[in-house]
Computed example of a mutant assay.
Amino acid sequence: MHYAEIPLTLECQGDALVGILTQPAHSSELGVLIIVGGPQCRTGSHRQFTLLARGLARHGIPSLRFDYRGMGDSTGALRNFEEIQEDITSALQGFLTHAPTTRRFVLWGLCDAASAALLHTRINPEIAGLILCNPWTRTDQGFAKAQIKHYYRNRLTNPQLWKKIFSGQFKLTQSLRELGTALLKTARSPTPRGPLLPLPERMQRALADYAGPTLLILSGQDLTAREFEDTVKTSDLWKSWLSSPAVTRHDLPEADHTFSQRHWNDQVIQHSAEWVNSLAQKEFS
């Protein structure tokens, strides 16, 4: 399907956001706002978001990918994923202005951008749906537990590790030091960080306010995805959400965090496009 790529400059609290609107010739009324995880720009690792936008366009789905303030070509101070809610709001407003046939939106995010998308549902309840890839629920304790449970355990069964050990190439002291640090973190109580609740709890609260459809895509070879799964197991609210009919889940067992091989990225595009078009039929039929 033919599509156009249109560069945009959008205003956000006195700063300029630079983005690319990818607009198919025959466009769905449901658009996708691609939120970029940080710190990186709108092309994404190995052109991931460029390929995603073009892949969605071939399925008739318009999208906007943009640099939030302080990143890429956008102006302003650098900020983290919990400080970009105004950027997302400005991008959605610009999307409406420059793609007037688009009526509602899906937020698409990888890693901390997935977390930012979920938190944004508390600000904009009119979002039609979420696509969350390897969501970021990082805490020091949670990451340490994921390392021990998934990384170190898997390494013990890796033939390459034993080959290094027997050849004298394995850095035993360094590895033991890293393992010891991880074990200490799992034993510590979470350190209070001012008035804010830990990130998983803030995300839970956002989930409690959001009952809309979600597509969840998880990589099999990714500690962030494993930490997310471990977080889900600790909460009845998370477990109830994951098992609800509103959530569609796809697992890519061999994929890494950013779906770096082309066929993994193609699978993500296919799952995303099919899900968005299915949601559009329900929204506008």
Results as ranks from 00 to 15, higher is better:
N158S: 11
Q147S: 03
F170P: 03
L184K: 12
K163P: 00
S175H: 14
L161D: 05
L184N: 13
K163N: 10
K163F: 03
P192D: 07
R177F: 12
S189E: 14
P159T: 07
L197S: 10
A146E: 04
L199V: 02
Y151Q: 07
R153L: 12
G180V: 04
L156C: 09
H150R: 08
M203A: 00
S189K: 14
T181A: 15
P159M: 07
L179R: 02
T173Q: 13
H150K: 05
K164T: 08
K185T: 05
L183T: 06
G194E: 01
R188V: 00
P190N: 03
G194T: 02
E201M: 09
S189I: 07
L172E: 09
P195D: 12
Y152G: 03
E201W: 06
T181L: 15
L172C: 02
T181Q: 15
R177T: 14
L161G: 02
K163G: 01
L176C: 12
T191W: 04
T191G: 00
E201F: 05
R193P: 00
P200Q: 05
Q169V: 01
E178T: 10
N154A: 15
G194A: 06
K149R: 12
L156I: 09
L172R: 08
Q147A: 04
L161Y: 08
T186W: 09
L199F: 02
G168W: 10
N154P: 00
K149I: 11
Q174H: 12
P192C: 04
I148M: 08
R155V: 06
K149F: 01
L199R: 03
L179H: 07
T157W: 08
T181H: 14
L172A: 11
A187L: 15
T186S: 06
L176E: 11
P190G: 02
F170S: 07
E178L: 12
A146F: 08
Y152W: 13
P198S: 04
L161Q: 05
S167W: 09
A182K: 11
P190L: 02
M203K: 02
K164E: 15
G180H: 14
L179F: 13
S167A: 14
L179K: 00
A182G: 02
I165V: 15
M203W: 01
R177D: 15
P159D: 11
I148V: 09
P195C: 03
K145P: 00
K171A: 15
R177V: 10
A187S: 11
R193M: 09
Q160T: 07
Q169E: 15
R177I: 12
A146Q: 04
Q169A: 14
S175C: 08
F170N: 06
P192E: 05
K171C: 06
T191Q: 13
M203D: 03
T186E: 08
R188S: 10
R202Y: 03
T157I: 06
P195K: 13
L172G: 00
K185R: 14
L197A: 14
T186A: 06
